[in-house]
Amino acid sequence: MTEARTSLRADARRNRQAVLDAARELFTERGDGVQIDEIAERARVGVGTLYRHFSDKQSLLAAIVASRFAAMTAVARAAEQLDDPGEAFRALLMGYLESAEGDAAFRFALLGPQEPDWHEINAEKQQFAEIVERIIRRAADAGHLRHDVTGNDFVLLTRGAMANMTGERDWRRHVALLLDGIRAQ
């Protein structure tokens, strides 16, 4: 957490959290069509208060992603501690997706029409990516994954599965099919 976030007054922290909660709800309900003034109204704060915390919709989406990345990094650290490299990769992938399944606003932020403003959450993203790369390399070196699988492939796998977390689609079947494709022969 940045120093600016930890040094906020109690009322400012409550307002920031109310804005994040309202944005999560509205993005989950309606996707990108949500307007800033609607988020402020749902959070019961003024638009000016919202803008003091978030300069635009992209910075708000980045904050949603950043909060989820903290949880995702914890999942990745736990997976990295597993002795079996193949199980470590599976735990990482499934833990990431199961966490994303319960957070439609996070999925929207990643899959929506605009990428989040990564510069605001670069440290979190970099830390997560480094752990993912180590897990993938270990699994590939142990013969559990194709040697050409990379962290970028992890992004493709997870985004594909997240796109199938709606309605009657079975994202777990999607993942099983994908895992068959990246498994070492």
Rank of each mutant, 00 (worst) to 15 (best):
A79V: 05
A109V: 11
R42S: 07
D84W: 04
A10V: 14
Q126L: 13
F108V: 02
R9S: 15
R13Q: 15
E41T: 12
V132S: 10
S55A: 15
G46S: 13
L26W: 03
E130T: 12
H144I: 01
S7C: 06
F108C: 02
L26N: 01
A63G: 04
L111F: 04
L61W: 02
L92P: 03
Y96D: 10
E41N: 09
A10F: 08
A140K: 05
F89Q: 02
G160F: 08
L145S: 01
E124H: 11
R183V: 04
V47Y: 03
E3R: 14
G160M: 11
L110N: 07
G151T: 10
D32C: 04
A23T: 08
M1T: 12
A23G: 06
Q185R: 06
N164Q: 14
E29R: 14
A139Q: 04
G48F: 03
D37S: 09
A43C: 07
R173M: 12
D21R: 12
S67Y: 03
V19E: 08
G160S: 13
R134E: 08
A62Q: 06
E80H: 15
D56H: 11
D56F: 05
A161M: 02
R42K: 15
L82W: 02
T28I: 04
E25R: 11
N15H: 08
L26S: 09
S99W: 02
P116Q: 05
A184S: 12
G181Y: 00
D11C: 05
F154W: 08
L93V: 03
V75G: 09
E80C: 03
E130I: 09
A129N: 09
Q127R: 15
A91M: 04
R172H: 09
S7E: 10
E133C: 01
A163E: 04
H119C: 05
R68K: 15
D153L: 08
A105D: 01
V45Q: 02
E25A: 15
W171V: 03
E87M: 12
E133D: 13
A78N: 05
L82R: 14
A10H: 10
A66W: 00
S59K: 09
V34Y: 00
H119K: 12
L177G: 14
R77P: 07
R172S: 03
R44Q: 13
V132N: 02
G181T: 01
K57T: 09
R173W: 13
W118T: 10
A76P: 09
Q58E: 14
A109D: 08
L145T: 00
A76V: 12
E41R: 14
A139P: 01
V155G: 06
R90P: 05
P113N: 14
A129E: 10
L61G: 08
W118P: 06
L92Q: 01
E41I: 02
